[in-house]
Computed example of a mutant assay.
Amino acid sequence: MGRDYTTLHAASLLTQLPEGARVRLAYAPDAAWTSERSLLAAIVNDLNWLVWAQTKDAKHNRNRPKPIGPQRDNANQKRVVGVAMTPDRLMAEMARIRREAQRNG
């Protein structure tokens, strides 16, 4: 990338990456759950709950189906929205991610 771009420009480029991009996955493993995958998981969870709701277990509130996918509404889980770093650290992180991407193919 060189010295021609500012840190702000690099950050702007990072925010425009498509869902499932390797850089996003490096910072947030939940990024593997694209919008499409999250919606499909929500459908599966709802169908599993509807089937369970018709059973004797539901009447006694036991053996609930375990949801799949990202659990975004969990209040105990802390989500990292951003990471403050110096321009040099940003460049080092980007270089590390590029090296890993080259190694992994």
Rank of each mutant, 00 (worst) to 15 (best):
V23G: 00
W33Y: 15
N76R: 11
T6Q: 10
A101I: 04
A53L: 08
Q16P: 00
P65Y: 10
R89S: 14
A58C: 09
L50E: 15
N76E: 13
Q102F: 03
R79Q: 10
K78L: 04
R22C: 02
Q54C: 09
A11I: 14
N74G: 00
E100I: 04
M85H: 02
P18A: 04
A75V: 12
A58L: 09
R3K: 11
T86D: 14
R3V: 03
Q102K: 13
T34A: 06
T55V: 06
Y5D: 08
E93G: 00
R98K: 13
D4P: 01
G69R: 09
T7C: 09
L25H: 02
K66C: 13
K66P: 01
W52A: 08
T55I: 03
L14N: 02
A75I: 10
V44D: 13
I97F: 13
Q77C: 04
D88Q: 15
L40W: 07
G69N: 09
A58K: 07
L39F: 12
P29G: 05
A75Y: 04
D88W: 14
N76I: 00
N61E: 14
W33K: 00
Q77V: 04
R79V: 08
N61R: 09
A75S: 10
R98D: 15
P18D: 14
L39I: 05
T6W: 11
N104R: 02
R24M: 05
D30P: 02
S35H: 03
I43Q: 14
R79K: 06
L40H: 07
R22E: 12
G69K: 08
L39P: 00
L25I: 05
T6L: 12
E19T: 06
Q77A: 08
T15F: 05
D46E: 15
Y5K: 15
R22K: 05
L8I: 03
P87V: 07
S12T: 13
P70W: 01
P87K: 03
Q71A: 13
A58M: 09
V80F: 00
R24K: 15
A21Q: 07
V80C: 09
T86K: 02
N74P: 01
L39R: 08
T15G: 11
K56L: 10
E36Y: 06
V44Y: 11
R62E: 14
T15L: 12
W49I: 05
M91E: 12
L40M: 11
L40T: 08
W49P: 01
Q71M: 11
R72V: 07
R62L: 07
W49D: 07
K56T: 12
N45A: 09
G105D: 07
I68D: 06
A10N: 01
A32W: 14
N45S: 10
I43V: 13
E100F: 05
K56C: 03
T6E: 12
V83I: 15
Y27W: 08
E100R: 10
A11G: 06
P18F: 00
M91A: 15
L50T: 05
V80I: 10
H9D: 12
T15C: 11
G2I: 11
I97V: 15
V51S: 12
D57W: 14
L90F: 06
L13W: 12
T15R: 14
L50P: 00
V81S: 07
N63I: 00
R103G: 04
A31S: 15
